[in-house]
Amino acid sequence: MATISLEYEDNYTVFSLENPSPFLCSSFYKHERKTVFYVFGFGGKSDEHSVKGIVPVYLNRANICLLNWEKEASTGVLGNLAYGATAVPNARKIGKRFGKTLLILNKNGLNLKKVHVIGFSLGAQLSGYAGREVRANGKIIGRITGLDPAGPLFDGIVSLRALSASDASFVDIVHTNPGKLGIDSSVGTVDFWPNCQSSVQPGCEIKGRKGYSKRNSCSHARCWRYFTAAIERPSAFIATFAEDCLSWKAGVRTNKTVYMGDDINLNARGNFYLETNSAPPFGFKKEDCTLRHLPTK
């Protein structure tokens, strides 16, 4: 069964979803800090790159926890077929259980307003299920960040309900592989569209037939790489509001801007666009942000 790991420097302590109350008594838990839960996606593992990217940047600024659902998210013997056969149903099951866990913690003193759940791919959809479970019980999570929420089975007219703006007080979405591995619609309080609505992010252009899946996986992973970089360099990821992608690329923009990452303006609403570099550092210096824009294709 999935567990929660509370991380601190090079140590961690593990708690079950069914009995999480000792979490609040752990010497690793700092009451004055916000609490961040990171949820990886389909086929993810507790030692994967996204975990190694997200967790360290929060160690000195929050109670950082990993929701480890490695077994339930596994490809197993079915390979990629496990996505629809087992992983998606498990995301719903674990998400609802995680929501109940948060309610138990709240009853024992955890301030849900100071809870930030960050989910990557199918982990973002799991986070939505958790948020809805909490809301069904008259409470609400402070913030959910969806890092390129999984698109397959959650996109289109006939689909499962995806992570949405109603699942937390504030929901921000980072789209990096829309219409492919990621969802292709605006679903958050704020939706970030790095490099407009491109499904292939700069630096992920891999030529050749075999490169198609690599372009998608590379672009899909850019969401957590951008977000991690935005935590480390907040002013380097400033996004501008525009009515749509074409307007943004044509330079028809407003003066409404917002920083991607922890310093986001919680009063912001709508779709925001930004450009990134093709390799680290992905963000620009603040003075460069008003000088650069993508050419119209």
Rank of each mutant, 00 (worst) to 15 (best):
A2V: 12
L6S: 01
E7T: 06
D10Q: 06
D10Y: 13
Y12Q: 00
V14H: 04
C25T: 14
S27F: 11
V36S: 02
V36M: 02
F40P: 10
D47G: 01
V51T: 15
V55M: 02
L67A: 01
N68D: 11
N68Q: 05
W69I: 13
T75G: 01
G84V: 13
A87L: 14
V88E: 05
R92S: 00
I94E: 03
R97T: 12
I104Y: 06
N106R: 08
N111F: 09
K114V: 08
V117D: 03
A124I: 15
A124W: 14
L126Y: 08
A130N: 04
E133L: 03
R135D: 00
R143L: 02
L147V: 14
P152L: 11
A162E: 07
T176M: 08
S185V: 15
S186T: 15
C196S: 15
S198W: 13
V200R: 04
Q201R: 06
K207I: 15
R209T: 13
R209C: 10
K214S: 06
H220S: 04
W224N: 00
Y226D: 07
F227R: 02
I231D: 04
R233S: 08
F237E: 06
D244E: 14
W248M: 03
W248L: 07
G251V: 13
G251A: 10
N255V: 12
N255T: 14
N255D: 04
T257A: 00
N265I: 12
F272H: 07
E275T: 14
P280S: 08
F284S: 01
F284P: 08
K286T: 13
L294P: 09
